[in-house]
Amino acid sequence: MEGLIASAARELRVVGAVFRQRALTSLRYPVDFVAQTLIGPIAWLVPAYFLGRAFAPAGDAAGMRALTGSGDYVTYLLVGGIVTSFVSSVLWGMGYALKTQMDQGVLEANWLAPASRFSQLVGLSAFNVAYTAAQVVIQLGLASVIFGFHPTGSLALALGFLLPVVLGLYGFGFAFAGVTLLMRDPNTLIDISDFALGLLSGGQFPVAVLPPLILGLALLLPTTYAIDGLRGILMHTHTIAPIGVEFLALSVLAGALLAFGRFAFLRIERFCRERGTIGLR
């Protein structure tokens, strides 16, 4: 039992050390931090916001009201943005962080340290969750002031709904980190996957406007239900399935993704170590 506690404490120290290292590195480059936390997310919202304003100068988009039950396109965009922020963070934070270590030539050295590689990855994702949560809060605060954010549903319920979504996404992130080790230059894959997931999941619009073939694809993605459910809770929009069903499906999926992500990462990592390609870039 004592050995188990000591082992858990050791792993926690690894998680904490990686968390601290990522926090220090992020704060060391203030322009990157400000641009990615404050300017970038708001900037991405602006073209959609003004496009909405062109179509609905009074703030109530009749077309969107007919499709979703709400014409408040600003809140609609912002709620979609919460989930797509976590998607971006998982893809860029997990995959790109390893790529940066590869480019700087420190990945192999870190990997050879007497610390569990999976714990290093957990530290990385723990930092990412904290970083993205802070980003989302700051973005919503800023967006409320600049554009107006008017949720009519329960914020506490929305937070509860978001939890399995985030856990599932980080399970996917573990697998994605493995793909980074294999591909060595995942930037394009990350960039395209990030945008495509946001697009197909209806991050900025109701998926009902997608052509039938693409709509079929969108309905296979858990992020579609995550965004749809969150909008249903916060804005009382029409949902694809009852919210309870969406929550149950997302919770089961989150557990499965976490298990799969861990399995995939450890398998790929072993494969790369056997081939001796960890240090290549």
Partner: peptide, 18 residues
């Protein structure tokens, strides 16, 4: 891919006669 997000948003905002 990139223009698609704005095209679909415009379609959603505009309604039946975009």
């Amino acid at each position: 891919l990139f223009p698609a997000a704005y095209i679909f948003l415009a379609r959603a905002l505009a309604g039946p006669d975009p």
